[in-house]
Amino acid sequence: MNLHAIKAIYVFELARTWRTLFQSIAGPVISTSLYFIVFGAAIGGRFASVEGVSYGAFLVPGLVMMSVLTESVSNASFGIYMPRYSGTIYEVLSAPISAFETVIGYVGAAATKSVILGTLILLTARLFVDFSIAHPFWMVAFLVLTSVTFSLLGFILGIWADGWEKLQIVPMLIVTPLAFLGGSFYSISMLPPFWQQVTLFNPVVYLVSGFRWSFYGAADVPVALSLAMTALMLVICLAVVWWIFRTGYKLKS
């Protein structure tokens, strides 16, 4: 195990976060605050409580999840696409470092950043609404699992993309819509039966539902199913990454 190499990549990637602190942390925190002001305070006041929680508090887990998963994808994809674009990837490819170690470094750094971001959003939210966390262990587990899974997805995206446009298009056309329609702003029980069924094909639903359960003990889908779906996504992403390194796809000719 080349621990020095993992550490080098991890530290290097996190340094990028500190360097672009405003863009990477402050940006999402500010936009989340805006959601709270608009949906929580302005509009939410007119809503009855959802599943026994005030609408503002109901929003918290969904907004955290939404930021964490979009930021995980964009961060991790940028982290690996940038060296491919600039050509500095040659160094990682020629170094005595295995695929597994490379992934730990890059994905670990992206996931770490997402966990920090999620925590900051939670703290920001606390300024606007009162909420409690019923199952802190599972809350952290869902947060970490989601960060890792979507950072892996971002890593795959960053290797697949061969232009800045492609790098933007997946988050914009797939991740953001899925996140918005994944029950961040509503309980899927509020939807007509047909759309409830359709929504179950959206993997984000399971993440948001499980995460919200860890806060308030109520969920749209059984929590075990949420956990299983998250684990399944993780396994699929891991398998794709394994295939990428095995075949050298877009990394080695």
Partner: peptide, 11 residues
């Protein structure tokens, strides 16, 4: 930073 990174990368 970039030179130190290379050293780490090579273990």
């Amino acid at each position: 930073a970039t030179v130190s990174f290379s050293r780490g990368l090579f273990g």
